[in-house]
Design a binder for these strands. Sequence first.
DNA 1: TTCGGCCTCCTACTCGGGTAGGAGGCGGCC
DNA 2: GGCCGCCTCCTACCCGAGTAGGAGGCCGAA
Lengths: 216, 216
Amino acid sequence: MTIRVLVADDQSMVRAGFRMLLGGEEDIEVVAEASNGLEAVDKAARFSPNVVLMDIRMPELDGLQATKRIVEADGAARVLILTTFDLDEYVYEALRVGASGFVLKDDPPEQLLAAIRTVADGDALLSPAVTKRVIERFTRIRQPTPPKGLDELTERELDVFRLIARGLSNAEIGRELYISDTTVKTHITHIFQKLDLRDRVQAVVLAYESGILEAT
Amino acid sequence: MTIRVLVADDQSMVRAGFRMLLGGEEDIEVVAEASNGLEAVDKAARFSPNVVLMDIRMPELDGLQATKRIVEADGAARVLILTTFDLDEYVYEALRVGASGFVLKDDPPEQLLAAIRTVADGDALLSPAVTKRVIERFTRIRQPTPPKGLDELTERELDVFRLIARGLSNAEIGRELYISDTTVKTHITHIFQKLDLRDRVQAVVLAYESGILEAT
DNA sequence: TTCGGCCTCCTACTCGGGTAGGAGGCGGCC
DNA sequence: GGCCGCCTCCTACCCGAGTAGGAGGCCGAA
């Protein structure tokens, strides 16, 4: 009794990687692939996989909407959400739309395989790193340990980061720290690179999620 | 670098079982045992284990109270709650008092070993069966009422507001809600006017300060 | 039915945010 | 001394964000 898997990811390289990884397992078979959300919904209906590996960021229809439709259409289907980002709010949204689990792309392969077998079995599963976040959120407890990357910031960058988190503009930050706004921009660019952020909005989200403001 | 473990369980047979199981592992060492909660707190202080395997039902002081004291005394200590009963109340209570994980005694031995290594690593962990219930519980708790001050916002504006608070760009919000980004802009302008905000960064700050995200 | 609120979408514009790349000064470390 | 990391500042450029102002459709209340 093999586990039938549908791989849904818009990057063909990623799909190829999964085919390779899963192909080596006796009890797992990739029965179909999809490169966008609509296709995933369609193929899930036609191939009735036991487990769907679902990327969140996809064209046409994102992974969350696709998951919602798939689970609505077939309650027995187990969807395992896959993503590279572990600081987004997608986790909660994913659980709400009916996903059975959540795995980070950086998790080791064995963990992914274990996750597939676990959800196929009917249990739910979160990657350890994700579970930690859920627990923190659930218990409203902030860890004393700052998230990875934050310690890479220099003192000055941390100053700027805290002010960003308060909603200040670059000019305001400059006035506050007695430096020019171009300098502020320089610091900000470095901060974004180090923390892998896109813009200051994501910086604010991270600041609150990681509880940095407590230390003000 | 071995993982130092303290086993706390009032049944000597159970403790013996763990000694046996853990004794076969290279990277794990049982440094102490306790047969009740008070003893567990005491030995944890004296032996500074990396991980405490804690039974819930114990004389003198139950596992939850013991966990609370241990974590308060040493923030680096990881407590793995162990029980045969998978009653929900214990799970949430355990997480509340600072446990890092939760494992059922029926879980296979490999899973227990994996759990020990995972929490020793700093990650949190729930047994798959437990995780499933946490997810169910989590998804059931959904908000009926959006907090104060924001009642001026229309339903749609609230949708947009929540997505802004997650750090999404206008284009991403549009994709999420199946509307164009110009429509998103319209909503956003109205949101800013109603809430007296300057830009989306301040919106994120407000969202977190007012606790709107709790109602995910 | 008419009015108004809500949602949708548009053009055209301004402006702050963010990137790229470079530069100089400073202090610590080898 | 020389190298390197940090902080500072700059120009030039691109683009997303936000504003202004308008428009059409839907629906419920007056």
